[in-house]
Amino acid sequence: MSKHSKQYQRADEPIFWGLFGAGGVVAAFATPALILITGLLVPLGVLQLDYASVNAFASNWFGKLILIAVIAFPMWHACHRIYHAMHDLKVDVARGFFKVFWYGMAFVVTIAAGAYLIAI
């Protein structure tokens, strides 16, 4: 007979899946262009990102929202995938610890980015 008496527990995954999904969207649509700009075009002198213009951008609320979105969401995305990839690689030790570790890291990055943006 099947295990009809089996009790199922609701997973807390929807919270993290939502953040993972938001990060996946940002990392797909915005991050490639951003890497191209900050990682290649600006260092190679093709484009400029001078302090005054970036500071002005980060000083208004629209700019702050954009910046926290492109920093925090991809971090949640990455931490979620890395946490699950550990299981894929059969690293199943201390699941509880690593859950706090990875999602905690994304949380800290979010708070730090928020605090910096408020400080500007």
């Binding site: 199922y8 527990q9 609701r10 997973a11 995954e13 899946w17 699950h84 894929d88």
Partner: peptide, 14 residues
């Protein structure tokens, strides 16, 4: 829905 919501349900899928 309890099966769907569980770790053994849709959330076991990557």
């Amino acid at each position: 829905i309890d099966i769907v919501n569980a770790e053994e349900g849709v959330w076991g899928c990557t």
